Amino acid sequence: MNRFILPLVFGIVGTAILVSLGNWQVRRMAEKEAFLADIDARIGDQPVAIPSKPAPERDRMLAASVTGTFTADELHFLVSTKQLGAGYRVVSAFETDDGRRIMVDRGFVPIPDKDATRFTGPATVTGNLHWPDERDSYTPENDVDGNIWFARDVPVMAKALRSEPILLIARDMSEKDTGVTPLPLDSSGIPNDHLEYVVTWYGLAIVWMAMTLYYLRRTRKTKKA
């Protein structure tokens, strides 16, 4: 009997640990889904005026609308999307009717259209405020002279465009620029891999228990022999 106790305890404890890890991932998945739902709801809220002093922590992804004038000053950010391929995000300086100067991420243009002439003039822009965190140790330095940028760093962009450190990601504009495809904010870029972990931990628990039962069965047969 002693030959069975240790493997049985080992099998039960191991299975319990793996199941508990699976249960934890189920809870994390529910939390993540609720978090993503909150983000989607915030992005789709009724647009409001841009706050006088927006804060990244409080106003990130705030739905906002502004009326003013697009200038010809713009920055080009190298980007690649699954649907559109390689190209540039166009971030333009935008002078509001109440005397502010902010930045608007108008969207995507193909590489050949980097220096094409784009719409300038009066427009109303609806979108979401954002402070992207895109720079890490692998991000190249911006080619300022060639106007090829690699990360949307709001304070650095604002200095280059002589604007307030406010970036509005366009979702809709009253004046359509047919050469630019908007890339509005959504939650699709936020990973949610918890279902894979749930399957992994529960699968390992099943395998662990099956291996334990197989070992006990073989041990029993060996003893009888």
Results as ranks from 00 to 15, higher is better:
residue 46 Q to W: 01
residue 75 L to Y: 00
residue 173 M to F: 00
residue 20 S to I: 11
residue 95 E to T: 05
residue 128 N to Y: 03
residue 132 P to A: 07
residue 32 K to N: 08
residue 50 I to K: 03
residue 224 K to D: 13
residue 47 P to I: 06
residue 137 S to M: 09
residue 59 D to A: 07
residue 136 D to M: 02
residue 173 M to A: 14
residue 113 D to C: 08
residue 162 R to T: 14
residue 134 E to K: 13
residue 182 P to T: 04
residue 58 R to K: 14
residue 107 G to Q: 01
residue 60 R to C: 07
residue 109 V to S: 04
residue 121 G to V: 09
residue 69 T to M: 00
residue 61 M to W: 15
residue 18 L to A: 02
residue 87 G to Q: 09
residue 147 N to K: 10
residue 109 V to Q: 09
residue 123 A to P: 00
residue 54 P to D: 05
residue 194 H to N: 11
residue 34 A to N: 11
residue 189 G to Q: 10
residue 76 H to G: 07
residue 73 D to T: 09
residue 224 K to L: 11
residue 177 D to K: 03
residue 42 R to L: 06
residue 217 R to W: 12
residue 45 D to F: 00
residue 26 V to K: 12
residue 132 P to F: 05
residue 87 G to R: 07
residue 68 G to L: 01
residue 68 G to E: 01
residue 194 H to A: 04
residue 185 L to D: 10
residue 214 Y to F: 12
residue 25 Q to K: 12
residue 45 D to G: 10
residue 139 T to C: 09
residue 209 M to C: 07
residue 159 K to Q: 15
residue 127 G to S: 09
residue 225 A to F: 11
residue 46 Q to C: 06
residue 91 V to C: 02
residue 4 F to D: 10
residue 8 L to E: 00
residue 175 E to K: 07
residue 74 E to D: 12
residue 22 G to M: 08
residue 91 V to Y: 03
residue 104 V to N: 00
residue 162 R to M: 13
residue 135 R to E: 13
residue 180 V to I: 15
residue 12 I to M: 10
residue 130 H to V: 14
residue 103 M to W: 06
residue 166 I to N: 08
residue 211 M to Y: 07
residue 78 L to M: 13
residue 136 D to F: 03
residue 24 W to R: 15
residue 211 M to G: 05
residue 20 S to R: 15
residue 111 I to E: 15
residue 43 I to E: 04
residue 96 T to L: 00
residue 66 V to A: 04
residue 210 A to T: 09
residue 52 S to P: 03
residue 105 D to N: 15
residue 146 G to K: 12
residue 154 V to Q: 01
residue 133 D to G: 13
residue 3 R to D: 08
residue 84 L to R: 14
residue 51 P to Q: 06
residue 12 I to C: 07
residue 177 D to N: 06
residue 223 K to G: 05
residue 60 R to G: 10
residue 98 D to A: 03
residue 127 G to P: 07
residue 136 D to S: 02
residue 217 R to Y: 14
residue 15 T to M: 13
residue 213 L to K: 01
residue 88 Y to V: 14
residue 55 A to K: 07
residue 193 D to H: 11
residue 113 D to V: 11
residue 86 A to G: 10
residue 139 T to D: 08
residue 5 I to K: 15
residue 26 V to E: 13
residue 124 T to P: 08
residue 58 R to T: 15
residue 86 A to H: 11
residue 90 V to E: 02
residue 223 K to P: 05
residue 5 I to R: 15
residue 26 V to S: 09
residue 11 G to I: 08
residue 108 F to E: 10
residue 203 G to V: 11
residue 8 L to Q: 06
residue 135 R to F: 01
residue 209 M to N: 02
residue 15 T to V: 13
residue 178 T to Y: 09
residue 213 L to P: 02
residue 164 E to A: 10
residue 194 H to P: 07
residue 141 E to K: 08
residue 30 A to Q: 13
residue 192 N to L: 08
residue 212 T to A: 00
residue 123 A to Q: 04
residue 43 I to A: 05
residue 19 V to T: 12
residue 183 L to V: 07
residue 144 V to L: 06
residue 222 T to N: 10
